[in-house]
Simulated scan of single mutants.
Amino acid sequence: MSRILTMGEIMLRLSTSNDCRLSEAKQLQVNYGGAEANVAISLANFNHQVSFASKVPNNPLGNAAKKHLHRFGVSTEFLLFGGARLGSYYLENGVGERSSSVIYDRAHSSFTEMERLEWSMDELFHDVELFHVSGITPALSAGWATMTHHLMKEAKKRQVKISFDINYRGKLWSYPEAGKVLATLLPYVDYCSAGKLDAINLLGIEEHELDDLSSYYEQINKIYPNIEVFYSTLRVINSTSDHTLVGTIWSNGSLYRSKKHYLAPIIDRVGGGDAFSAGTLHGILSKCDFDYTVSFATAAAALKHTIYGDCNQFSIEEVEEFMNRQDQRIIR
């Protein structure tokens, strides 16, 4: 299988039970996650060789983050140790009509405080086929916006394909700030996770009355013809714990859609988009057709909603079995 490099911040996640407000919590569930780390774990579960690059403090929390990655077979040869603290976030789990909410506590973390790239670029990208990063990383600081741009340039020098998930977070930066940085990054991207709202709010595509996702991708592709594949999910939220999900992939003028998945009840939504990204990248790297790829990726995302934590835990065989099932009878 392919050798893949992902880079980003891995964080400590502290979350409430569904029936408890964060302000009233007496105990919190502990997990570790982050967009690029979640993608790395899914791809390792799909039998790819995956390395995750980041920086964590040299303390028990940093070591716990490393062990979390090792549990799922992700290489940590490029996981640096140093700095003051591990970034964290608090998740108040919603239920029914009460939405989930996130509080970030990642300022001055080991990764955020990096002022230069502390890896050898030749070692980092040696024998790498794909580099994956998300828009969360350049949103962390002006320095990381510059370093993400430099990493993409270095990857391209070595003919490495680049996957980029826009992954806009309004708590980290504004639309104008993000749009300015994206204009410097997207010329290097081969595979891009972006939806209709990204096109309108970040990329300057004019909204039109026809709800035709393909036309938005075609307009973005005219600006950035280097992007070979766009992928995204279409989610309908009936309540916090009841969604429907359809996956889409666009390439070379054609839009591919998965079947509709009914997600109810949802155990944990966090990481669902990362599971979809990983499923899409698995299909592309495995040279599968797009009908299979969009079905596989959406099935992987749907399964992620059924388990607790940031990362997906399913193998290729388990995703394919779920993808092809006609009912939910007990498997025995």
Rank of each mutant, 00 (worst) to 15 (best):
12 L>G: 12
116 R>C: 04
82 G>C: 05
37 A>M: 07
36 E>P: 00
7 M>K: 06
39 V>Q: 05
23 S>M: 05
72 F>A: 14
113 E>T: 09
34 G>I: 02
116 R>Q: 13
10 I>E: 05
49 Q>N: 11
30 V>R: 15
119 W>H: 04
14 L>R: 06
22 L>N: 10
99 S>C: 05
60 P>E: 10
65 A>R: 12
90 Y>E: 00
26 K>Y: 09
4 I>F: 03
3 R>S: 14
36 E>C: 10
86 L>M: 14
36 E>M: 04
19 D>A: 04
35 A>T: 13
37 A>I: 01
82 G>Q: 06
75 S>C: 03
79 L>T: 05
33 G>Y: 15
94 G>H: 13
18 N>H: 11
82 G>T: 06
30 V>W: 05
5 L>T: 04
74 V>H: 07
75 S>F: 01
10 I>H: 02
14 L>C: 08
3 R>K: 15
44 A>H: 13
91 L>I: 12
1 M>Y: 07
129 E>T: 10
99 S>P: 09
34 G>R: 09
42 S>V: 11
14 L>A: 10
128 V>S: 01
31 N>I: 07
49 Q>H: 11
123 E>M: 00
44 A>I: 01
83 G>W: 12
82 G>D: 11
78 F>H: 15
123 E>L: 06
30 V>L: 15
66 K>M: 10
86 L>Y: 14
54 S>M: 10
28 L>Y: 10
41 I>C: 09
127 D>G: 02
104 Y>T: 10
44 A>L: 06
41 I>G: 07
123 E>A: 10
111 F>K: 00
117 L>R: 03
94 G>C: 08
93 N>C: 04
39 V>H: 13
107 A>M: 08
19 D>Q: 08
52 F>Q: 04
124 L>Q: 06
56 V>G: 13
36 E>F: 02
130 L>M: 12
69 L>G: 03
57 P>R: 00
57 P>G: 02
118 E>T: 05
50 V>P: 03
87 G>A: 06
65 A>K: 13
119 W>N: 08
106 R>G: 10
107 A>Y: 07
17 S>K: 15
130 L>Y: 02
25 A>L: 03
8 G>W: 12
12 L>K: 14
122 D>W: 07
119 W>M: 07
31 N>T: 15
98 R>W: 06
14 L>Y: 13
109 S>G: 05
68 H>E: 03
32 Y>P: 13
63 N>I: 05
100 S>I: 11
79 L>V: 14
110 S>H: 09
45 N>H: 15
59 N>I: 09
33 G>F: 08
3 R>Q: 15
27 Q>W: 04
81 F>K: 10
42 S>M: 12
75 S>T: 03
91 L>R: 01
23 S>T: 10
111 F>H: 02
4 I>R: 02
32 Y>N: 06
90 Y>S: 01
45 N>M: 14
102 V>Q: 05
50 V>R: 11
60 P>K: 13
73 G>H: 08
71 R>T: 14
107 A>E: 15
86 L>F: 14
61 L>D: 08
73 G>E: 06
17 S>Y: 13
82 G>I: 08
